[in-house]
């Protein structure tokens, strides 16, 4: 992707760890943990249950899933722009971007709540069948991650507004976590909603 180097890094081309080691321990570990969830889902699906899974998937609203994907990837853009603005010293704009990202996150939660509600009202609970067990647990764990991400964003927002010189590693770390929440959702959306 040409044009992304210089503007993003302010001209630096040497290798640099974004954020700090701590957040990467967290993020990489979380990525592996989610892979375990995916593996559990695949194993349950493929071991003789595929018909059931296919039928159950029909009940999922791809449209709601699509909306949520758009919401999250837009929030990721805001976070990335916010980090970039902070790096340029534009802290007011940066915190504005984080507010927008946080708003997206909250909208995501509302859409998710509505999605769950409409399933529950239709009698599809966590113990309905194996597919819905995985659906509720995976999306549930993801929601917990969104909540943690929102907490992180609030911490970043306070840092950008309060501190005389906001710590860039913290801002980057929060951004990195939020992007992880976003791309994990890409995979959940593909696996649960789209791939049949």
């Amino acid at each position: 992707m040409h044009g992304l180097e210089a503007p993003v890094m302010g001209g630096a081309t040497s290798r640099r760890l974004p954020g700090d080691v701590n957040i990467w321990v967290f993020v990489i570990g979380d990525m592996l943990i989610f892979s375990a969830y995916f593996a559990a889902y695949l194993f349950a699906d493929r071991v003789g249950n595929h018909e059931l899974f296919l039928q159950s998937q029909q009940y999922l609203s791809q449209n709601l899933g699509f909306c949520n994907t758009l919401i999250l990837l837009t929030s990721s853009l805001f976070v990335a722009l916010g980090v970039h603005a902070a790096r340029l010293g534009d802290f007011a704009v940066a915190s504005r971007f984080l507010e927008l990202a946080g708003a997206c996150g909250v909208v995501f939660l509302f859409v998710k709540a509505y999605e769950w509600y409409s399933k529950l009202v239709g009698g599809l609970t966590i113990s309905t069948n194996a597919f819905f067990m995985h659906y509720y647990v995976m999306t549930g764990v993801h929601v917990v991650h969104v909540l943690i991400g929102l907490t992180f964003l609030i911490v970043l927002w306070r840092e950008l507004r309060g501190a005389p010189t906001p710590r860039m590693e913290l801002v980057e770390a929060g951004g990195i976590y939020w992007h992880m929440v976003d791309f994990l959702w890409f995979l959940i959306f593909a696996l649960l909603y789209l791939m049949r």
């Binding site: 993003v8 640099r16 974004p18 990335a80």
Partner: peptide, 14 residues
């Protein structure tokens, strides 16, 4: 794309 560009991993150590 998100990892390499938003998370800036393309500029990170190998």
């Amino acid at each position: 794309l998100v990892i390499r560009n938003y998370m800036e991993v393309r500029f990170a150590p190998s």
